[in-house]
Amino acid sequence: MRNVLCYGDSLTWGYSAEGPSRHDYADRWPSVLQAALGHQAVVIAEGLNGRTTAFDDHLGGADRNGARALPVALVSHAPLDLVILMLGTNDMKPFICGRAIGAKQGMRRLIDIVRGTTYPLGAEPPEILIVAPPPLSETADPDFAAMFEGGVPESEMLASFYSELADDTGCGFFDAGSVVETTPIDGVHLDAAGTRALGKAMEPIVRMMLGL
């Protein structure tokens, strides 16, 4: 039995722009991945709305700094065979960072945390799969358009930056934007069909990294 931790933001939590609401459990991409892997693995969804790679955002009721929360998640869910890191969308907010290069450096920090954590019972650090979130899209929603002002072109660079980072650090890489697009309702999130498609598309690389 393999253990997989999906560490992300609202795309992992399952935020639906329609409503807004939360996608049904079966539609969220970690749930779809779990169904595809069956009894060969346990897929743990650890998503938080607004989570960044490594930047503070005090607008939410929970700590959104991914670097600060990651060690607790790693140790509490250990032993782990694979950690899937899909963050960077919220880094595109201009009052957070606003630059793809900042998200790349934040993702590098998360990799260092995964590999530098002391795991219970002497367990080895898990493998890491970096997932570039799908680029932002233009939206008529005034709040989301303002919140992510200038973020569309920056978000389009995330896949390239993350791919280079994966090569440099020996991590796996998957480009979510190669299979799904963000909904124009808010320009940020996935509809139900998109989040299901993402979970299914990630099955082959996850199987390969787990040796299944």
Rank of each mutant, 00 (worst) to 15 (best):
D143N: 06
G50H: 13
S76N: 12
S178K: 05
G187Q: 08
G61T: 02
M147K: 07
G187S: 09
T118S: 15
K104S: 14
L198S: 03
V206F: 06
S21G: 09
Q40F: 15
C171P: 00
P184M: 11
G98Y: 01
A145T: 07
M1K: 00
L70V: 10
G151T: 02
Y119Q: 04
S155Y: 04
Y119K: 00
L158E: 01
S10M: 12
S21V: 03
H58R: 13
L198Y: 02
L110Q: 03
P153I: 08
E138C: 11
I44D: 09
L87V: 15
G14P: 08
D168A: 15
L74W: 07
P135T: 06
T52P: 01
M92Y: 05
I130H: 02
P94I: 05
T169W: 08
D81A: 13
L87M: 11
E149H: 04
A17L: 08
K93C: 09
P79L: 12
A145E: 08
Q34M: 09
G170S: 09
M209V: 08
I111D: 03
V179Y: 01
V42E: 14
I111T: 02
N65E: 09
I96N: 03
T117R: 07
G14E: 05
R51G: 09
W13S: 11
T182F: 07
A36G: 10
G8V: 04
P184Y: 12
V32Q: 07
V4P: 02
S31M: 05
L87C: 14
K93G: 06
R207E: 06
E138F: 11
W13D: 14
A197K: 09
G177N: 01
R115S: 07
R2P: 01
P184C: 12
T117S: 14
A35W: 08
R108N: 14
G199H: 01
F55M: 07
I185A: 15
L210E: 13
V32P: 01
N3C: 14
D191F: 04
I101T: 14
I128M: 06
M92E: 05
K93H: 05
F161Y: 14
G122Y: 00
P184G: 10
Q105Y: 15
V75I: 09
A132K: 01
T89R: 08
P20F: 09
I84M: 07
V32W: 04
T182C: 15
I205L: 07
S10C: 13
Y162T: 05
C171E: 03
F144V: 08
T12H: 10
P120E: 04
D175T: 09
A67E: 12
M1D: 13
P142C: 11
L11D: 10
D141R: 00
V131H: 00
G38K: 02
T118C: 13
L33P: 13
D91Y: 06
Q34N: 08
Y25V: 15
P126K: 08
G88Y: 05
R64W: 11
D186S: 03
C97D: 11
G50S: 12
R2N: 13
V43D: 00
P184L: 12
G106E: 02
T169D: 12
G194S: 06
R196W: 04
A192Y: 04
F144E: 04
D56G: 10
G47F: 10
A54N: 12
M107I: 01
N65Q: 10
G19L: 08
G61A: 11
M86I: 13
S16Y: 06
A35L: 13
L129F: 11
S160T: 15
